[in-house]
Design a protein around this nucleic acid. Structure first.
Lengths: 167, 167
DNA sequence: TAAATCGTTCATTTTTCCTTGAACATTTTG
DNA sequence: CAAAATGTTCAAGGAAAAATGAACGATTTA
């Protein structure tokens, strides 16, 4: 006799579909599947959940749940709350798009944009060291284009957040 | 005696820095490193390059170069051109941001948005099957929020392309 | 038409990333 | 204080993705 005959299903249909959606979203964003699962479960929950329940409902190791929840807290995608008479931390999904996107951009994208500045500086050094001639003009134009792209990214992301704020 | 004593360096400083930039950009976008390398090399090249040269300059296998170039062509990030007196295909980087971003969104993002519609439909089915009560209201609100996000994504991406067109 | 060139495909290897679970620290309960 | 509960860390294992290179087909050249 298998467990499914005696145990209640761990997840409701609604929960399963929410998890499915966020697992796929995580895939698009390059985030681990387990993180998508956790967020999906919390998104489907009217009440905040403690870590044990995440572990149990998702059949996930404590390690993954601990790390996943930490990551989600760091990017501001979940908040931990008190529940009276329970010393465990309880977690709930942050669902304001502005907060979600803002945390992701700050933690995941901003560092890359920052590093890109250093790389553009090095590229500029290379162009400066080039001998005069047709290739130098070409290289300089390519560098300028990269700089425009970088400036564009720096401007468009805050704009994106302002628009997201209205959703 | 090592090769570096007798062979010219395969890549110029300018090329190396361009490649570095696009390798990191690829990482952010979840694209294989080899694809970033190829695009970076082509971006740095005033002339279109045949596949052999990509293989040689990047010390990359023919397989990777072939597949990487195919992918780049599919998303519209490189174009192949004729070079008179040479039967090999020659590749050059597409550098219009609108084209680059458009191809990426069409090939990589759009399929996910399309699939999401199916998932939202299934989620709607789950909500419809829920008994009346507080949880049903909650679930319905969460579903609506997902639908708003989806609509938002569908609207913001074309807008993004219009703005990118001016860069 | 034989040899050389160009490019693709795909099974295999390599690498990278994710998950696991045991060990541990900390706090709480009996 | 001993046992239980809660949560973190990290080495090791496993899974998924990427790179390799040999085999192959197609085309061109001598």
């Amino acid at each position: 006799m298998s467990d499914s005959d005696v145990l209640p299903p761990r997840l409701s249909g609604f929960e399963r579909e929410c998890i499915d959606i966020f697992v796929h979203a995580a895939q698009v964003l390059g985030i681990p599947r387990s993180v998508g699962e956790i967020y999906g479960l919390l998104y489907a929950s009217p009440e905040p959940l403690p870590m044990d329940e995440v572990v149990e409902r998702l059949s996930m190791s404590k390690g993954s749940a601990s790390q996943g929840l930490r990551w989600l807290r760091e990017v501001g995608a979940v908040q931990s709350t008190y529940v009276t008479g329970d010393r465990r931390d309880h977690f709930m999904a942050e669902t304001r798009l502005r907060k979600l996107a803002g945390g992701y951009l700050r933690e995941q994208i901003e560092p890359h944009l920052h590093n890109a500045e250093g790389r553009l500086g090095r590229l500029e050094g290379e162009v400066a060291g080039l001998p005069e001639g047709g290739d130098r003009k070409f290289s300089s134009e390519r560098l300028q284009k990269l700089r425009r792209w970088h400036r564009f990214a720096r401007q468009i992301l805050p704009l994106f957040l302002r628009v997201a704020n209205k959703i």
